[in-house]
Design a protein around this nucleic acid. Structure first.
Lengths: 232, 232
DNA sequence: TTTTGCGCTTGACCGAAATCAAATACTCGA
DNA sequence: TCGAGTATTTGATTTCGGTCAAGCGCAAAA
């Protein structure tokens, strides 16, 4: 793998303080693979073979039931996915597909478990990673159960703007279709919800978003750190 | 604490293989406290002070937002709660209240983190516990996003019956009000949903439930191991 | 036993969100 | 540049679930 990627990887909380040796052992068995957009990387129900890390591109984690489908999350570079399944050696609960062409670092599940069993630092890193992921999910569940579609979208926009520098101008990182699934609604509803938000200073042009009345939008969204802040 | 409780505690996966010494150190700083029903044990937003374990009774984990409230889960004996917050030393994302008079084992958060930092076996135990909790939450999110109220109730009943021995007769473990919040609906909707399920052989009398047409109910519920099985 | 309150149910109604259908608007490869 | 196939929007309609209000029944307290 490229030197710069390796350095990024070593910087991750998950691998922090792991020591060159352990890190080497883990990364040597790993390989970096490219995938074109739309490819299904893993399928729910399968046993875990690799711990995946997104190095470039975007990966959508989703799940099917009957003829329905929903997006659980979208993974961006230097985040891993399906860690819990790998640690426990249980079947995947989610499927994953590449939203864009991407490069994925694949660490053999067996090697990860091996490192987990033998390297206390790594085990603690995993525990903390899982604790954060757990809390993120609690927040997502609260988001779903306690908010309307309008509120979810408003809050998503506010947060997104913040992450993009708080300029009031940013672009959607993926299709509206994906955003809709991510926020728990069908595309038609997302479209109408965007229309409703015009009254709150939200302008949509393709993927570019402009927020011109932060006051009004914030008043509608009413973000709560206990739902929206990644680190409380 | 009572000998039998201590034995139960020592049996938990979380404390498995922890060694008498570590276990002692952890449990010695702990204390067992009784709480009457309806008491709020912890409040979301507070910093974690103790890792809580339900030894007797039931605890509801819930969350508020604006004037709404929802139940995230109900904890039964020998399960812990707010582990992730304790590990990371971050604020609680959920509140907890006693659904019934209960006894709670309280382990000082500092001691838990100390054990986590120094005892690799405990750290791994925590990681696995968190991995399981994470997966349970993924399932819950899928349950919420992919199913209707009717399907959620049908599946809950099917699972509950299974856990109670699969006899087709069991009693609700808590108020319907709580069940409604747990399943993500208001009490009125739960009531009506139960009424709808009569056509599928579900009889309700107070807290006693009878399932007389397993076939029909299963066909409606269509449980999926990837949503409903605790261990896949 | 009576009172009070809460849990639960039921009816009427409302609003949010899904579905179905159809009309653009893009995007990507030929 | 020209389609083919998506993505997105919009309108009409339905369904699901929530709100409000009233009544019933049980259970704990007086």
């Amino acid at each position: 793998m490229r030197r710069e990627d390796r350095e990024e990887v070593a910087r991750l909380p998950l691998f922090a303080g792991l020591g060159e040796k352990s890190l080497d052992r883990l990364l040597n068995g790993a390989f970096l693979q490219r995938f074109p957009a739309h490819v299904e990387l893993i399928r729910e129900g399968d046993p875990p073979d690799f711990l995946h890390m997104v190095v470039e591109g975007q990966v959508e984690l989703f799940s099917r039931y009957r003829d329905r489908e929903t997006t659980v999350s979208v993974i961006v570079p230097y985040d891993t996915f399906i860690l819990a399944a790998v640690v426990l050696d249980h079947r995947y609960l989610k499927s994953a597909r590449a939203l864009a062409p991407c490069r994925i670092l694949m660490l053999p599940a067996e090697a990860v478990r091996q490192a987990f069993d033998t390297d206390p630092v790594f085990a603690r890193g995993i525990a903390q990673e899982l604790a954060m992921a757990y809390r993120g999910l609690v927040q997502e569940l609260k988001n779903q159960k306690l908010r309307t579609s309008l509120e979810r979208l408003a809050n998503w926009l506010v947060r997104r703007d913040q992450e993009a520098g708080g300029t009031g101008r940013f672009t959607l990182p993926f299709d509206k279709k994906v955003l809709a699934a991510r926020l728990g609604m069908v595309p038609e509803v997302l479209s109408r919800t965007f229309a409703t938000l015009q009254a709150y200073g939200v302008t949509v042009d393709g993927r570019s978003i402009t927020l011109s009345d932060r006051e009004a939008l914030m008043n509608l969204a009413r973000p709560s750190p206990l739902i929206d802040d990644p680190e409380v």
